[in-house]
Design a protein around this nucleic acid. Structure first.
Lengths: 327, 327
DNA sequence: CTGAAAGCGCTTACAG
DNA sequence: CTGAAAGCGCTTACAG
């Protein structure tokens, strides 16, 4: 820590062998007799030798680093609202990467001078907007990039496809089956996130196909005005609601709105929420849950990306399925 | 993506200049006339040249990477229980690092062959156990390491000190002031995490100092048996409780226990919880909150570590204060 | 103002 | 079996 770092030459000198021999003894492929090797290793150890990973990477041409770009990190309120989701995603991605010998770099954006100085082997851009600048930057790096399947750039190596469409259809069908007459889809207003547009698109498609009307509402993720907005919606006679809002705080607002409007879930109001109902708390309250496991989701993507990095595959498409857990 | 990557020589050749001139035009310090520089840049652009960050780092000797080791990621149940906390920590650390031009690598452990091949500029080891192997590995790398202040190794560059002691004293004093007669501290049983031992230590110290008895209980973070355990505790006459369990699911169990035992918060039961009560939901229910902002916490540590990396400081100690928000 | 060369610390053929 | 050398792709003094 104080003086200069020990280099391979230093241990080679100390051991009285060539630098090649030292290299071999420490990481090489057994060309050196057991005895000398052990001696060299011990000397390296005593000198506190730690190989310089940058130099090693220069010959290898590759550092086992994959980046995960979550632009929501920069938007505090939105990130907060979905904290459990992001923790799942990051945790699972970290583990999946580690399984393959890679480490995960978490980024809020690629738009910074220093990013160019980090040698990523691959990059994941989640929830890209249309013409996402981060996606552009990622692609410009000439490395494998994984992102949403709605993006059309042909340089994209892995496209992941969360079937929000399926989730919308499933949820609305379920609501109707349960007896809802007037359906609404409630989603966050996170500017131009592709997945939100996607949901809207599928809601309209469902409406056309079933000849049933659906209205889409965009609510702020972090606002205290949600309760009033929800009361309005209930007031307007919507009795079948598919909510893609984050669960916790939204649920509070929802509960109060229901209370004020005197509705009863399962009777004159039917509800499907997008979430992971691990504790079963929602189901107990008569709320059905549409979900995808963020854990499995993240894992699939990381694995597919690393497959491409290591040339096991050229391109890939990962499909993430939704399930509906009826209350 | 297909053939070989464009190198600096390639653009130098294409521009008919020396490699030194090309280097300068692209990243250098303006030795080259505006006109040639622009020409070189354009050529580089057309060739899709992206500088090799590994090679650059070899001369620099440094890659702007800080690692955050969260061993809890490997323990699914525990990580799940504290997901909101970890999301805050990771989000804030990512942002703080980015502000200084660094990127954050999230790791579950350092115990993997590949980790040695990643050139970290510094490492943060959170919630180390006693004789934590990850901390050992981190220290062996000869780079600045930040970790809990209870660790004694003198190679540690930044020690962060979350004053759990303060929180325990504050919470227990508050409970007594509110009229509690028999106090308990409830905390998770996460094996030998230092912070848990720390809490226990301070509870005993408080007990000695105030001559009041306190009992410490360890509950599983992910168990459904919590409710019964809590009923036992209430049954035994504890009417002042400081809980360091994760809030959401624990609160459910707690509510049921209170219900079964017919207790009323604020009357015959006083409660302080360790959390961030951003929505004020706990306060509304008469529950006081002891907390530290994970956001501020992570940010302070990252900043201090980077200060050491960049030699602004040699060592540092970061003190994280707790606050008690009375209901 | 700009070219040629040394050097960053490794690994890996290539000779002996 | 092992040493000496080339090379990975940059940056940075050092000459011209």
């Amino acid at each position: 820590m104080t003086s200069k770092r020990t280099r391979l030459v230093d241990v080679a000198k100390a051991a009285g062998v060539s630098i090649g021999a030292a290299s071999d003894a420490l990481s090489g492929k057994n060309r050196i007799p057991e005895a000398t090797r052990n001696r060299i290793r011990e000397i390296a150890n005593n000198l506190g030798y730690v190989p310089n990973p940058i130099a090693r990477a220069l010959t290898t041409g590759h550092l086992p680093l994959v980046g995960l770009v979550i632009s929501a990190i920069d938007r505090r309120a939105e990130f907060d609202a979905y904290r459990t989701y992001w923790a799942d995603v990051i945790g699972a991605a970290t583990l999946a990467a580690a399984n393959r010998g890679y480490a995960l770099v978490v980024l809020a954006t690629l738009d910074s001078f220093e990013i160019q100085s980090i040698p990523f082997a691959g990059l994941i851009v989640v929830d890209p907007t249309t013409n996402d600048p981060d996606l552009e930057d990622a692609l410009a790096l000439n490395i494998p990039v994984a992102t949403d399947y709605l993006q059309t750039d042909e340089r994209i190596a892995v496209k992941f496809r969360a079937e929000y469409g399926d989730s919308v259809g499933m949820a609305l069908n379920h609501l109707v089956k349960e007896g809802a007459h007037k359906c609404a889809v409630i989603m966050p207003s996170v500017d131009d996130a592709v997945w939100v547009q996607n949901v809207e698109h599928y809601a309209i498609a469902w409406s056309d196909a079933t000849n049933t009307s659906v209205d889409c509402f965009h609510l702020p993720v972090d606002s205290s005005e949600n309760e009033l907005a929800l009361e309005d919606i209930l007031q307007s006679g919507f009795d079948g609601i598919y909510s893609l809002m984050p669960t916790d705080e939204f649920m509070q607002a929802f509960d109060e709105a229901i209370d004020h409007k005197n509705k009863t879930i399962g009777k004159d109001l039917h509800l499907v929420m997008l979430d992971e109902d691990r504790t079963g708390a929602l189901a107990q309250r008569g709320i059905s849950v549409a979900g995808v496991s963020p854990h499995q989701y993240a894992q699939s993507i990381v694995t597919a990306l690393i497959d491409v990095i290591e040339r096991t595959k050229e391109h890939d498409q990962v499909k993430i399925e939704f399930r509906l857990t009826e209350a």
